[in-house]
Computed example of a mutant assay.
Amino acid sequence: MATTRDRALTAAVRLVGEQGVRALTHARVDAEAELPRGSTSNWFRSRDALLTGVIDWIAEQERADLTAATTPAQTVDDLIDTLTALIEDATGHHAVRTRARYALFLEMTAGGEAHGPLQAQRARFEAWARELLTAFGAEDPDAAARSLLAVSAGLILNRLTVAPDAALRPTVAIAVRGCLRG
C-alpha cells in the first residue's frame, strides 16, 4: 500500500500533467489523492517544497524505469529498440508524468529552487546516453549524447501533442546511427 507521501506525490504529478503547474496546490493534491486536508502540507510545508518534491519524485520514477529498461545492448539494433521502448513508455503508459515533467521544465526556466533538480536529472540522462554511445564507438560522445537527447525530446513532444501514433523506431534508428557516425 502506498504511503501518504507517495499518494500525495502521485496525485500532484497527475494534477500537473493534466492541468499544468498552476493547478498544484496543497488542497488540490489532498483532494486528488483523497487524503485528509492538510496531509500534503505535513510532508511539503511550502509550494516550493511541493514543487521540489514532485520534481524529485518524477526523477526517481524515471531513473527506476530507465534502470529496468536498460539491459546491456549488444548491438546497435538493441540500443535502438531500448530507446524506442523508453520513448514509447514516456508517451504512452507514463504520458501524464512526462507532461508534468515538461510543464515543470517550462515553469522553472527562470531558475529558483526547483531548477537544480531538473538540471541534475537532465545531466543523468545525458551521462547515460554518453556512456551508451561511447560503448558503441561514437566519435564525439558528448555531442552525440546531446543530439540524441534533443531528438528524443522532440519525438516525445511530437507524440504528446500532435502525432500520438507517430512511428518512433525509424527516427530513433536514424538518430542513433547518425550519432555513431559523427
Rank of each mutant, 00 (worst) to 15 (best):
A69Y: 10
G92T: 12
L51K: 10
L83R: 15
L51W: 03
E32N: 00
A33M: 00
S41M: 09
S39Y: 05
A85E: 13
L24N: 08
A73P: 08
A73D: 07
H26T: 07
H94Q: 12
T40D: 05
W57E: 14
A90Q: 15
E18K: 11
T84L: 09
D56V: 12
E34F: 09
A68P: 09
A49P: 07
A31E: 15
E88C: 07
A49S: 14
S39H: 07
A27M: 01
I87N: 06
D81C: 00
E34H: 11
G53L: 01
T91M: 04
A64I: 08
T71A: 15
V76G: 05
G20Y: 07
D81H: 11
T67W: 04
R63E: 15
T84F: 10
D65C: 09
T40G: 06
L66Y: 04
A33C: 02
I58Y: 00
T40V: 08
E88H: 10
L66T: 15
G53Q: 05
D81S: 08
L66S: 11
G17I: 00
V16H: 00
T91W: 01
E88Y: 09
L66W: 11
F44K: 05
L50G: 07
A23T: 07
T52S: 13
Q74K: 13
A68L: 13
V16C: 00
E88S: 10
D78G: 02
R63N: 09
D89N: 13
A27G: 10
I87D: 08
P36Q: 02
S39R: 04
S41H: 08
A68N: 11
H94G: 07
T82F: 06
T75P: 04
G17K: 04
L83V: 15
A33E: 02
S46M: 03
A59F: 04
Q19W: 10
R28M: 08
D65H: 12
E18F: 03
T82V: 14
W57L: 03
G92C: 10
D65L: 10
L35F: 03
S46F: 05
I87H: 07
A59C: 05
S41C: 02
W43Y: 15
I80L: 03
Q61P: 04
G38F: 00
L79C: 06
N42H: 11
Q74V: 14
D56E: 13
H93A: 15
F44S: 02
W57G: 10
L15W: 02
V29Y: 03
T67M: 09
I55A: 06
A49M: 11
G20R: 02
